[in-house]
Design a binder for these strands. Structure first.
Lengths: 123, 123
DNA sequence: TCAAGGTTCTACATTGCGTAGAACCTTTGC
DNA sequence: GCAAAGGTTCTACGCAATGTAGAACCTTGA
């Protein structure tokens, strides 16, 4: 339930980069540019985009405005929130969470460790 | 590459609970007990277990001793290490890691936050 | 050397994802 | 009011991963 396919991920990336809700057609265009660096190419069928969007909607990652005529789509949560949720999902399935967190911290960069300290506040 | 199937995950759980290397047959028995609460039932074919073990080996999660006759299998990394690796994998695919970490910390229990502070040391 | 037990090969069903045609519904320009 | 243009849903196919296991092949002990 957590894993997205390649296209699904790309679509999510585009939605995350675009705060406003977009249409399937707009997404199709963005995808064409994104995937094949500028020069128009390999446009996917709109139905393909729509299928993917429906699946993402079913997964709870995308929200669709059904009231406007060309439906408009947007990500339900921010990319950061989603990623953090995924991390919690991974962590949640572990018996000894603290041991996992310890190892996790072990391979975090110094700069990030500093940030974490700041975020956690002083004891 | 990160996602495991249901059976694969169960097998990994058993291997993680058992420090010593075990045979496919032993695993088959453990699976029977685990999956259907005690009373012997639904034993999987040994070949099924072997297939799963081979796949897990290919994924680098399981190590197999080929020198002993009934081959013996064991997890390559601890469950904690594996989980931490997964968390890093999830985090790695994000542009603004610090923002993700911030949100992640936001939903960590107080006790765990305290542990994290300790692990990070005081600024 | 041969039977018992272990391993590898091959295979099939199911499910998720990429992909899109065909059919169906809406809107809009006349 | 109606037909064409455009949008949405249904259905479907191919491919890869996973659960499952039979058939064939290899090893070893009696």
């Amino acid at each position: 339930m957590a894993t997205l396919g390649e296209l699904e991920r790309t679509v999510m990336d585009l939605l995350w980069e675009n705060p406003e809700a977009v249409t399937a057609n707009a997404l199709r265009d963005m995808l064409a540019r994104r995937t094949h660096g500028e020069h128009a190419s390999k446009e996917l069928a709109v139905t393909t985009v729509l299928t993917v969007l429906s699946r993402l909607e079913k997964k709870g990652l995308v929200e669709r405005a059904r009231d406007t005529r060309p439906h408009r789509y947007q990500a339900v949560t921010s990319r950061e929130e989603h990623t953090a949720d995924l991390m919690h999902e991974v962590l949640g399935s572990a018996p000894n969470r603290e041991a996992v967190l310890a190892r996790f911290l072990g391979s975090v960069s110094d700069g990030e460790a500093a940030t974490l300290r700041k975020l956690l506040g002083h004891s």
